[in-house]
Computed example of a mutant assay.
Amino acid sequence: MQTLQAQIQIPPEFVLISKVEYEELLNNTLDGKFLSLKEVAEHIGCSTAYLKNEILYHPRYKEEIEKWCHFPTSSGDHYRFHAKSLYQFLDRESVKLFLKKKY
């Protein structure tokens, strides 16, 4: 095996970190973040009507979703989704959710 030693200057506006630390930082960007109904629909590429009818109010998922989603309770109230929990749910259930996807 051949090796090469090199010295590279890193500009002061950049920081060198390990891959593990970088991945942890990426995962932490969702901590405490909430998303709107429109943001979720855009993220998964469907209409808000599909999201409500086929996912949010589907008996199979509703009980779990209620743990990390705020459903509107009055006029002017909005849906709010805990981003990290939502993305974990979508990763786990994506195949089931989108096999019958209709727009």
Score class of each variant (00 low, 15 high):
Asp31Lys: 15
Leu97Thr: 03
Leu97Arg: 01
Pro11Leu: 10
Glu54Leu: 03
Gln7Ala: 12
Gln5Leu: 06
Tyr61Trp: 11
His70Ser: 03
Glu13Val: 13
Leu4Asp: 05
Cys46Arg: 15
Ser85Tyr: 04
Gln9Gly: 15
Glu66Cys: 12
Ser75Arg: 15
Arg60Ser: 14
Ser18Trp: 10
Phe81Val: 00
Asn27Arg: 09
His58Val: 07
Lys84Gln: 05
Ile55Tyr: 00
Glu66Ile: 10
Lys33Val: 11
Asn53Gly: 07
Phe98Gly: 03
Leu25Ile: 15
Glu24Ser: 01
Lys101Arg: 09
Lys102Ser: 07
Ile17Leu: 07
Ser47Asp: 10
Lys84Asp: 03
Gln5Phe: 14
Cys46Asp: 04
Arg80Gly: 01
His78Lys: 15
Glu21Trp: 09
Lys52His: 08
Thr29Cys: 01
His78Trp: 13
Lys100Val: 13
Ser94Val: 05
Thr3Trp: 11
Phe71His: 05
Gln7His: 11
Val20Met: 05
Leu25Gln: 14
Ser47Ile: 12
Thr73Ser: 04
His70Ile: 11
Gln5Ala: 10
Val40Gly: 01
Leu56Trp: 03
Tyr87Thr: 08
Lys67Val: 08
Leu30Tyr: 08
Val40Glu: 00
Pro12Thr: 15
Ser36Thr: 10
Ile8His: 13
Gln88Val: 11
Thr73Ile: 12
Glu42Ile: 06
Tyr87Glu: 14
Phe98Ala: 05
Gly76Asn: 05
Cys46Ala: 13
Asn27Leu: 02
Lys38Gln: 00
Leu26Lys: 11
Leu16Asn: 08
Ala6Arg: 12
Val20Asn: 05
Tyr79Met: 03
His82Pro: 05
Glu21Ser: 04
Ser85Trp: 00
Glu24Asn: 08
Gly45Arg: 02
Glu42Ala: 11
Glu54Thr: 07
Leu86Thr: 04
Pro11Val: 09
Phe14Met: 14
Gln5Arg: 15
Thr3Gln: 10
Lys67Phe: 09
Ala83Arg: 00
Tyr79Gln: 05
His82Thr: 10
Lys84Ile: 06
Leu56Ala: 04
Lys38His: 10
Glu66Gly: 06
Leu35His: 02
Ile10Asn: 13
Ser47Glu: 06
Ala41Trp: 02
Ser18Asp: 04
Val20Ser: 14
Ile65Met: 09
Phe98Cys: 02
Ala41His: 00
Arg80Ile: 02
Phe71Leu: 07
Cys69Asp: 01
Lys84Leu: 08
Tyr50Pro: 04
Lys102Ala: 06
Arg92Lys: 09
Tyr57His: 07
Tyr61Ser: 00
Arg92Leu: 13
Gln5Cys: 10
Ile55Thr: 03
Asn53His: 14
Pro11Glu: 11
Tyr57Asn: 10
Asn27Asp: 13
Glu66Met: 15
Tyr57Lys: 12
Glu42Ser: 12
Glu42Thr: 06
Ser85Pro: 03
Gly45Val: 00
Cys69Asn: 02
Phe81Lys: 00
Tyr103Met: 11
Ser75Lys: 15
Leu26Trp: 04
Leu90His: 06
Pro12Met: 08
Asp31Gly: 04
Val15Asp: 15
Leu90Trp: 01
Leu90Thr: 01
Leu56Lys: 02
Val95Cys: 04
Asn28Phe: 06
Leu37Ala: 03
Lys84Trp: 00
Glu13Lys: 14
Tyr50His: 01
Ile10Trp: 09
His78Ala: 00
Leu99Ala: 13
Gln2Asp: 10
Lys62Trp: 01
Ile8Lys: 07
Glu64Asp: 14
Leu99Gly: 12
Pro59Phe: 05
Leu90Ser: 03
Leu25Asp: 13
Gly45Asn: 08
